[in-house]
Design a protein around this nucleic acid. Structure first.
Length: 577
DNA sequence: GCCGTTTTCGGCCCGACTGTTTTCAGTCG
């Protein structure tokens, strides 16, 4: 059982307990378990048998939880979970994913109107039956209908990080359980698109049926949709399709190219091939005259035969990359290896899971030359945001910690909230004391476009602000971005020598690929940061890099790749681009 | 359900916003 699956069961237990209006503290403790298990850096199924104390040591995991995990690992299910599922219609749990709808209202709809499905809820809202309930009115019905629409739009898609995890588990499994030559993930996962409809895996092997047979027996398979001689298609989790294609090794490169897409990129490539006297398919590149295969073993050869520079998968969207490749002008895309530091992370002083010392140590282990500690400000009272006094005291702590870690520069910082009127949630004198000021929005998302733009631009004019974090506020597959004129924000940013962030947190990736490219072209400098809330989340940086690469960014566009010296000049606003 | 220089019971991050109300319940972060 994958960590994610185990964690999800605890999440579902919490959901059902909420619908049943059980003790909120018990529910919270299940949520804590869900979060903790989702973030551990080792395989739970293996560890619980080999080193059970490691699991018992996770904060939030007590004896009862430990026993449930053991039951799950040993039997694949858990009695309490099964029992709870029998008390509540499963379709009710889907309704919890709707915005602005929580357990109380869902339970009310269920008990008063017998609503258990999305369709039932939609019907009740459309026919104005919801407003007959106390606390419900016209606006609530409209909001629910909107939430249903938004939910439908994202249904069947998953976030990139989840898809990468699932794909990796299939790759590891196939390596161990099938006779094969090469294997790779293709499709939108390889192109690092931010959401994924289905996962494509490509294998080369002499024994396709055996590979397919192993594939459909992967332990997470919920349903086998197709099992043929060279193709298999299965469903995992909640409706996510994984497709496997097996080819001979001489076709692997061509198949990788073909199944990586995108469709539009391939159409353009096919036209070019035809013009040059070739035919291209998933089996190879063939000479139209002789019919001989001229490329196919290696993906690179396909491009070079077509007189093109190799095009990184992230650029294959038919957005001008083929013309650039023709003239050998493919950008030298930024890589994780270019990074010298991470400028946005949290500690236990606000809502992080690890202490200042632990974060610094992890930053050093990650090979960084510098990191910035940027906890939340007091507007986020619920998660213990810092007030002026607490920030000053954290600055002292950072100075003290520097002595123990001579190999990494630890910058002081704050992620300060932009209040509704565009002022910052921290006195200017205190903001002036820290090395990095990140400004960001965490509340009042529904201002008008004009108000929101003015609010953000006002914040950017504060001379202490260095970075605007997650500039659009969207949460992938969960919350739409707020309405803001990003071009105007980009202009304000460059005028005030502020960097815009690509927040690498997998649920955010904000700015996204297209926006990153747009603001860079407008002369804006970017910063890519993990926004880590624990040491393991420092690894999220790679998703930010994926986004930046899709946005055609090079290392010079991103201050995290600068030397400490050059970075300091940008932070002090002595230079910009 | 978890946790404990408050230690085996009794606590457990809280403030703002929205839409419904006319003083509040539900949701979110």
């Amino acid at each position: 059982m994958e960590n994610r699956e185990i964690a999800a069961i605890f999440g579902q237990i919490a959901d059902i307990l909420e619908l049943k209006e059980e003790n909120p503290f018990r529910i919270r403790s299940y949520r804590r378990v869900e979060e903790a298990l989702g973030n551990v850096g080792f395989n739970i199924s293996r560890t619980i048998l080999e080193d059970p104390d490691k699991l018992r040591g996770i904060p939030g995991v007590g004896e009862a939880t430990f026993r449930k995990i053991l039951e799950l690992v040993e039997t694949g299910a858990c009695e309490e979970h099964r029992q709870l599922l029998s008390e509540v219609p499963e379709s009710l749990l889907t309704l919890l994913e709707l915005q602005n709808l929580g357990p109380k209202k869902i339970a009310l709809f269920w008990k008063q109107l017998g609503i258990t499905t999305l369709e039932g809820l939609e019907e009740a809202a459309t026919s104005h039956r919801l407003r007959t309930l106390s606390g419900m009115g016209e606006k609530s019905e409209a909001k629910i209908l909107q939430a249903i629409n938004e939910f439908r739009r994202r249904e069947g898609r998953i976030r990139l990080d989840r898809a990468v995890e699932t794909a990796q588990s299939f790759l590891d499994y196939l390596k161990d359980n099938a006779m094969l030559d090469r294997l790779a993930v293709a499709g939108s996962v390889r192109r690092r698109q931010e959401t994924i409809g289905d996962i494509d895996i490509l294998v080369s092997s002499d024994q396709p049926p055996d590979v397919i047979e192993a594939f459909v027996r992967h332990p997470s398979v919920k349903e086998v949709l197709a099992q043929g001689g060279t193709k298999g298609s299965i469903v995992v989790g909640r409706g996510i399709h994984v497709d496997l294609r097996v080819v001979s090794d001489d076709s692997f490169g061509a198949a990788l190219q073909y199944f990586t897409g995108s469709k539009q990129h391939n159409v353009a490539l096919r036209e070019r091939a035809k013009r040059l006297g070739y035919k291209i398919s998933e089996y190879g590149l063939f000479d139209l005259g002789t019919g001989a295969q001229v490329a196919g073993h290696q993906e690179e050869d396909i491009y070079s035969r077509l007189e093109l520079e190799f095009i990184p998968p992230e650029l294959r969207e038919n957005q001008g990359e083929i013309a650039k490749a023709e003239h050998h002008q493919i950008p030298n895309l930024i890589e994780l290896g270019d990074f010298k530091g991470d400028l946005h992370m949290h500690t236990t002083d606000s809502d992080g899971r690890n202490s200042l010392e632990e974060m610094v140590e992890a930053g050093q282990r990650a090979g960084y030359e510098f990191i910035a500690i940027t906890d939340h400000s007091k507007a986020l009272a619920m998660i213990g945001g810092l007030n002026e006094e607490e920030l000053v005291s954290q600055i002292q702590n950072v100075r003290a910690v520097r002595k123990s870690f001579p190999d990494i520069e630890v910058l002081t910082g704050i992620e300060v909230d932009i209040l509704a009127d565009g002022t910052l949630d921290m006195q200017d004198e205190v903001l002036e004391m820290v090395d990095v000021v990140i400004a960001s929005i965490h509340s009042r998302f529904s201002l008008t476009r004009k108000e929101m733009t003015a609010r953000i631009c006002k914040a950017l004019q504060n001379p202490s602000v260095n970075i605007l974090a997650h500039p659009t506020g969207r949460l992938i597959l969960r919350r739409e971005r707020y309405d803001v004129d990003l071009e105007e924000v980009a202009r304000c940013a460059s005028e005030n020598r502020v960097c815009l962030e690509i927040n690498a947190y997998p649920a955010r990736l904000d700015l996204n690929d297209a926006h990153s490219r747009m603001v860079r072209d407008m002369g804006v400098l970017l910063s890519i940061n993990s926004d880590a809330h624990s040491i393991s989340m420092l690894d999220y940086m790679s998703y930010g890099v994926d986004t930046a690469r899709r946005g055609w960014l090079e290392s010079d566009d991103v201050i995290n790749t600068y030397t400490k010296n050059r970075l300091d000049k940008v932070l002090r606003k002595e230079t910009y681009r």
